[in-house]
Amino acid sequence: MTILEIIALCFIAMGLIFFLGGTVGILRLPDFYSRLHAAGKLDTLGSLNVLLGLALYSLAPISLLSVLTALKILLCMFFVFMASPSATHAIVDAGMDAGMPHWRKR
């Protein structure tokens, strides 16, 4: 196992931890907005980590093809990074428009 692979695995593991946290957050948090918060933030971060890990992993025997694959994955990262938060934002916005109430501590 090369160092590159170890680093990649670390990234992937970290991403999975974020995913786990996000899932727990969706299940446990009290209202719509805070759940979206968990989903939006942690899923984005989790997938970024996983994708980064995969990009590194695919570099292992370095060649033109593997670099191209890594670049494609980086592009995916870029788009996820753009799309995921703004999607969350749009959903929150729609919730505000529809008059979804905030959660308040009793």
Partner: peptide, 19 residues
């Protein structure tokens, strides 16, 4: 007036759509 014009969404989408 129900569907508000949202700056963030529209800008991001405009960025993404060509790709």
């Amino acid at each position: 007036e129900i569907l508000r014009y949202d700056l963030v969404t529209s800008t991001v989408c405009r960025l993404m759509i060509p790709f």
